[in-house]
């Protein structure tokens, strides 16, 4: 893993073995779980279609969409070695297949993967 010395539990020269797990719980598990607990507490007191929850859902959707764009445009590791035109082309063709098959999630993902692998092997390989 890259340098984590700026994070809590990782300050020491050799971080303790539990440090990654403490980081996962505090910065991953709890910020996720609080929304489920809040949902249980608020159920019956607010409508899931209220204005504020529509906005909340839009913020979460835009954030995850930004993650999608970053994973395709600026990946790391093996995916980064593939040309950007191939990554964008595979995602675009997969999305078209998804839309034209009546929003079939499985078809969209499989077509995108097939284009990515075939393109790399046949064209750029």
């Amino acid at each position: 893993m890259n340098d984590l010395a700026h994070l809590p539990f990782f300050g020491a020269a050799t971080a303790p073995v539990w440090a990654p797990y403490a980081l996962i719980v505090l910065a991953g598990v709890l910020p996720t779980a609080v929304w489920r607990w809040a949902g249980v507490a608020l159920a019956g007191r607010m409508s899931p279609d209220s204005e504020v929850l529509t906005w909340v859902r839009a913020v979460a959707t835009a954030l995850i969409a930004a993650v999608i764009a970053k994973l395709v445009l600026y990946p790391s590791g093996a995916l980064a070695d593939m040309p950007i035109t191939l990554r964008l082309g595979a995602a675009g063709i997969g999305f078209l297949a998804f839309v034209t098959t009546g929003k079939n999630v499985l078809v969209g993902v499989l077509i995108a993967e097939a284009v990515l692998i075939a393109g790399q092997v046949l064209v750029y390989g």
Binding site: W35, A38, P48, T61
Partner: peptide, 9 residues
């Protein structure tokens, strides 16, 4: 994760 709130509600 905030989308979990309206889903739970």
């Amino acid at each position: 994760a905030v989308r979990l709130l309206p889903m739970t509600v």
